[in-house]
């Protein structure tokens, strides 16, 4: 059975990390996900517009939610960016909590053909959709090339795990364990290291570069010390600081790193049988050599 979602890819996945958008498009048919892209929706604010004017960010997000609610028979709205998830969940919390506020914001957005956000939207990061809508068993059954022997360090970042109650994390839905669960379902081994729930440092890259890159460098170094082959991230902004900026982080912390960082859809795609190149891995700044070596070794081993 296919799952239809109102799809919000975010800005960065169509900008500086095009391989994220591309890899999501590549794996969607393999998982029977139908992506209806919200191509009229605006930026989630990424915490920055919120900082400038909270109501403005809430209004832009309410408009996105309303557009998503117009997508016929969609299971939910889906994003592939933790930062969007966090920023949108924060707006949604305020909109859902207070009907006067919701009416007030709806008045602003209704000038566009009577657009109106109705309380109770279900907005899920791809990671949550994988576990909650597709299910780990189903995912496991679709794996063509188990990630056997690949040591993957989960890097959750901030926006998708904190604050836990706003993001609906509880015993029933341990969303702060989903990356662990997905890596295992794909046949890989999970590497626990100090940085699993820490911050990549991206939000202050233009304000305090040293501190920002020290954070990125430290987590990458910790993952190396824990013997990870690669990291996996559900957020393109984390990817920017951990991959694109990795050469600069190396200089700031005075240590060679060379740790490949994969987007979640890329890791899933590998296990579903796609090649690193089809998943855009050649676009990474840090060549995912260990991952490519692993995939050729697996192919070599399974050859007759």
């Amino acid at each position: 059975m296919s799952i239809k979602v109102a799809y919000w890819p975010g800005c960065v996945s169509r900008g500086f990390t095009p391989e994220l958008h591309g890899s999501m498009a590549a794996i969607a048919p393999l998982l029977d996900i139908e992506l209806v892209e919200l191509d009229r929706a605006a930026c989630s604010g990424a915490g920055v517009i919120q900082e400038h004017n909270q109501e403005l960010a809430d209004s832009l997000n309410a408009r996105t939610f309303a557009l998503a609610q117009q997508v016929d028979s969609a299971t939910c709205m889906m994003n592939i960016c933790s930062t969007c998830q966090g920023a949108q969940s924060e707006s949604q919390e305020r909109l859902d909590a207070n009907s006067d506020y919701r009416d007030h914001v709806n008045e602003t957005i209704s000038r566009e053909h009577g657009l109106r956000y109705r309380k109770g939207l279900d907005n899920k990061n791809f990671l949550w959709l994988l576990v909650e809508e597709i299910g780990l068993d189903e995912l496991r059954s679709r794996v063509k090339r188990p990630l056997a022997g690949l040591k993957v360090g989960p890097f959750y970042g901030c926006y998708i795990v904190r604050p836990a109650d706003r993001l609906g994390i509880d015993e029933e839905r341990p969303r702060d364990r989903y990356l662990h669960q997905v890596i295992e379902a794909l046949g890989g081994s999970v590497i626990d290291y100090a940085g699993v729930y820490k911050c990549c440092g991206f939000p202050i890259i233009t304000m305090n570069r040293e501190v920002s890159l020290q954070q990125a460098g430290r987590h990458l170094g910790d993952a190396i010390d824990a013997d990870a082959d690669c990291l996996v991230v559900p957020c393109p902004l984390c990817h920017l600081n951990l991959d694109l900026q990795q050469p600069l982080a190396e200089r700031v912390i005075g240590r060679d790193l060379g740790m490949p960082v994969l987007h979640l859809p890329q890791l899933v795609g590998l296990a579903l049988g796609l090649e690193p190149k089809e998943l855009g891995m050649s676009r990474h700044v840090v060549r995912p050599t260990s991952v490519i070596d692993w995939s050729t070794a697996v192919v070599g081993a399974s050859a007759p």
Partner: peptide, 16 residues
């Protein structure tokens, strides 16, 4: 509005 557990598409009728 809609029940809290409503899915994305449910609100369509009224929204339009």
């Amino acid at each position: 509005d809609v029940p809290a557990d409503a899915k994305a598409g449910d609100a369509k009728a009224e929204a339009s």
